[in-house]
Deep mutational scan, measured.
Amino acid sequence: MALNTPQITPTKKITVRAIGEELPRGDYQRCPQCDMLFSLPEINSHQSAYCPRCQAKIRDGRDWSLTRLAAMAFTMLLLMPFAWGEPLLHIWLLGIRIDANVMQGIWQMTKQGDAITGSMVFFCVIGAPLILVTSIAYLWFGNRLGMNLRPVLLMLERLKEWVMLDIYLVGIGVASIKVQDYAHIQAGVGLFSFVALVILTTVTLSHLNVEELWERFYPQRPATRRDEKLRVCLGCHFTGYPDQRGRCPRCHIPLRLRRRHSLQKCWAALLASIVLLLPANLLPISIIYLNGGRQEDTILSGIMSLASSNIAVAGIVFIASILVPFTKVIVMFTLLLSIHFKCQQGLRTRILLLRMVTWIGRWSMLDLFVISLTMSLINRDQILAFTMGPAAFYFGAAVILTILAVEWLDSRLLWDAHESGNARFDD
Rank of each mutant, 00 (worst) to 15 (best):
314 A>I: 14
157 E>H: 13
19 I>W: 05
117 T>K: 06
295 Q>N: 14
377 L>C: 02
105 G>Q: 14
381 D>S: 03
214 W>E: 05
387 T>R: 07
266 C>H: 04
414 L>R: 00
92 W>E: 02
228 E>G: 14
159 L>V: 08
293 G>W: 07
172 I>S: 09
137 A>K: 11
115 A>W: 03
340 H>Q: 07
423 A>F: 15
278 L>P: 03
374 T>Q: 00
253 I>N: 06
71 A>T: 08
75 T>F: 04
240 G>I: 10
31 C>Y: 00
317 V>W: 00
22 E>A: 06
358 T>R: 09
252 H>V: 06
200 L>K: 09
79 L>I: 09
27 D>W: 08
211 E>K: 15
191 L>Q: 04
389 G>N: 01
311 I>T: 14
1 M>N: 00
282 L>T: 13
421 G>Q: 04
87 P>N: 05
110 T>I: 04
243 D>Y: 12
410 D>M: 00
155 M>W: 02
48 S>A: 11
198 V>E: 08
362 R>C: 04
370 V>C: 05
310 N>K: 15
101 N>C: 03
424 R>Y: 04
222 P>W: 11
125 V>A: 07
230 L>G: 14
314 A>L: 10
178 K>G: 00
383 I>D: 00
332 M>N: 07
6 P>N: 09
357 V>C: 06
304 M>P: 07
414 L>D: 08
186 Q>L: 10
129 P>K: 12
89 L>P: 00
422 N>M: 05
413 L>N: 11
104 Q>I: 03
116 I>D: 15
322 I>S: 10
142 G>K: 01
205 L>S: 15
267 W>S: 15
169 L>E: 02
39 S>N: 08
226 R>C: 13
172 I>G: 05
192 F>T: 12
270 L>V: 14
214 W>K: 02
251 C>K: 00
406 V>D: 00
350 R>D: 08
67 T>C: 12
405 A>V: 06
364 S>A: 00
315 G>R: 15
17 R>T: 06
380 R>K: 02
29 Q>S: 08
192 F>Q: 06
131 I>G: 02
179 V>Q: 01
325 P>E: 00
315 G>D: 01
351 I>C: 11
355 R>E: 11
44 N>V: 05
230 L>E: 13
26 G>P: 07
56 A>Y: 07
45 S>V: 07
289 Y>N: 02
168 Y>H: 06
201 T>R: 15
312 A>L: 14
76 M>R: 02
224 T>A: 13
368 L>M: 10
285 I>V: 11
151 P>N: 03
292 G>Q: 09
426 D>C: 04
57 K>G: 04
335 L>Y: 03
296 E>W: 10
88 L>Y: 02
163 V>A: 04
360 I>V: 10
171 G>E: 01
214 W>F: 15
347 L>Q: 14
302 G>N: 00
331 V>W: 10
307 A>C: 15
286 S>D: 00
191 L>P: 02
340 H>S: 10
425 F>L: 13
197 L>K: 03
344 Q>I: 13
375 M>H: 03
310 N>F: 03
419 E>G: 09
228 E>P: 12
194 F>Q: 09
83 A>Y: 03
349 T>V: 14
393 F>E: 10
45 S>I: 08
240 G>K: 11
173 G>P: 02
159 L>M: 03
364 S>K: 01
7 Q>S: 12
269 A>P: 08
271 L>C: 13
220 Q>L: 14
65 S>L: 03
53 R>G: 09
248 C>E: 00
362 R>V: 04
275 V>L: 09
248 C>A: 00
167 I>V: 14
125 V>F: 11
375 M>P: 01
7 Q>F: 05
10 P>Y: 07
191 L>G: 08
35 D>S: 05
423 A>H: 09
388 M>N: 14
303 I>P: 01
70 A>H: 11
